[in-house]
Nucleic acid binder design. Structure first.
Lengths: 211, 211, 211, 211
DNA sequence: GATGAATGAGCTTTCATTCAT
DNA sequence: CATGAATGAAAGCTCATTCAT
């Protein structure tokens, strides 16, 4: 009856979800995971709940994912991909921007859109779920790319574009998180705060323009 | 900040040394918990690890704390108390401030100091550890008190003090967290970013002054 | 008495054999619990011992039972169900009884049969295991039903049937417990004592008959 | 820090409680144990609770008793001693009895008195507390002595005195327990049931008298 | 003797993971 | 490939007992 087995094996290769049925199963598992995370949080996220919610057996979960963390990785990766997509999309706006204010506007609204989409899930991912060093590196990389894109866009309008871009991006990200994810108790509405954030950042970015 | 000591008044001259043993044990447990949290994070925090790290038996842990969460509560409470102490200390600076810039400076440096003290622990507490609703309320209350104090201080210099105070406080808090806790990869040093943050906020707060 | 079997009707011809594995596991757990209780008593009953004795892992125990008490509940419920079955069975005898003596005989032998089946387990259940209020109520209800049935049976032969039925039932139960469960040291055999009990109760029940 | 120590030692001799202070301490411990048992039952009985309730330190408890069970033993022994005292007291009544009915009356009322004194404690002792084989033997011996005394008293009035005495004693004991300790739901009052018990037993004992 | 802080074996329960079917 | 019963390491917590003070 009792039989010791290695626990940290993860030998079984992740079956590549190429066939459509496989793809559907993988998708159901990932979606179920995201839903549980958004609705009931990380403490309630366990593999049996995922399987049940996805409508598949726990065995199938392990057919497609070597372990629990790897499911989360997909979600985190999708989140990062969404961020990257948003960046790509924003790049054109940034480069076609008429002035620095447009760039600030694009950055602020970009981060707000990112945080408004499923804020419960966003919160769970950013405050509860353990992130691997590799993922942290990828987050850093994305952040860095955004800063570079914004720097490039800003450089034709302002001096010290890199520093300004860094502060702009970090502030827009952090405050969007506060207003829409943390939902801190505020004396005014989140959208009012968003407007104020935008005002502050426009003024900051444009400060000291030579023109 | 931690380290509560019994009043050593002349009331009871010969006070049992036993009490200090208890005090030392409690302290060892709390410190061990904070250390594990800072060094290995919430997933590695378990009562056996706490006991081992504190150099006491698991039984002793439960002699002084009814459960695992209550140890964390002490740490969280100490953190909040530190924030409240900082607020009290800052209030005098705020009220004796010569101008709006001094107030911004005080707020920014206050948050930086708060985040510079054991940033690893700070990170664990703010992103991993489950917070009870009561604690969340206490955090909100503290934040609210700070905003009120800053609003009051700013109101003699600027219009729309409450809105500005809110954005000032949230930005200072969020960015101090980024620069010193998250330690995001930056093109320049954290202290440079802190200076830039300060510059941006001073400019924001003073914008539209009638002077 | 225990050993529930699924109906093997023709509804679903090929029924998974898996279900029978579960059934067997549940049964092994319940049986192991009963055996430990009977052989080593309540103090020796712990979930690890149950799992070991059942030849399953501790995880399997919690796959089928939410907690330790729930395993006991099954055993207690089976015991109560056995009592209820015995009552149902006895009712026909009671109502077809030729005279009051037959009724007494049926009651006494009914309780003796109940107590003779695994007296060690019976002892553990009646003296060691914590009973929930709901179970106590169910026991009371069963006892009450028995008294009502006996009252009804007796009422056509004797006056004051309810009082007599109560004393009859309580005495038969209590003494069957003594003779077969407590196994008190006796100068004569348990079955002799059972006969004497019967004699005493027949005489008591028939006393003051109008005939 | 961790230091393994033997757990089943019990080497320290039980300090004989001869001095009055010692005696008072022992008594406080025993009384506290009995009170907890009566009020909150066996599951709530732990050595720290006993020490706290007795107003002594846990260390003192182990100064006078080698282990928890030994405290219970004192209580059980006192209970048995009370039974034995009651027997001694009853013996004179039994031998001076005018007829068999007086003997039955004495036995029934004796057991009722025994069970009416602190029925909660009685219940705990008879249904929850683990009894050692030695104690069980002592209970048997007491029971046997009672049967012998009753047999002797009855023998001048009836035939088959031993058998009758056994049934009389067991029934009186069992039913007194039911009416006053178990407090089973009854259609009539406990004292009515006690009277009925007495009536039944008188009739049984006197049955078949030659006079 | 008295104290009570400290101990740690042992218990209940959870859940990521495996594998027979 | 799918299933889900089974596994067992590991975590939280209790309490009888010990021993330094």
């Amino acid at each position: 009856m009792p039989e010791k087995r290695a626990k940290k094996s993860a030998k079984r290769p992740v079956r590549r979800a190429l066939q459509s049925r496989s793809r559907a199963t993988v998708d159901a598992i990932v979606k179920a995971t995201a839903r549980i995370l958004a609705e009931r949080g990380w403490p309630a996220l366990n593999t049996n709940a995922i399987a049940a919610r996805a409508g598949v057996s726990i065995g199938s979960v392990y057919e497609y994912f070597p372990n629990k963390q790897s499911i989360l990785n997909v979600i985190i990766d999708r989140h990062l991909a969404a961020g990257e997509a948003k960046l790509a999309e924003a790049t054109s706006i940034l480069s076609s921007g008429k002035d620095a204010d447009d760039i600030v506007e694009a950055v602020v609204s970009g981060f707000i859109q990112l945080h408004q989409d499923d804020p419960r899930l966003h919160r769970a991912l950013s405050t509860e779920v353990p992130i691997s060093p590799a993922q942290r590196r990828r987050i850093e990389a994305l952040r860095s790319k955004i800063v570079i894109a914004v720097t490039s866009a800003l450089s034709e309008y302002v001096d010290g574009a890199e520093l300004k871009a860094t502060l702009l991006v970090e502030t827009a990200d952090a405050l969007a998180h506060r207003w829409f994810v943390d939902k801190v108790g505020l004396p005014v509405s989140a959208s009012t705060m968003a407007g104020e954030t935008s005002t502050m950042l426009k003024s900051y970015v444009s400060a000291g323009r030579s023109d």
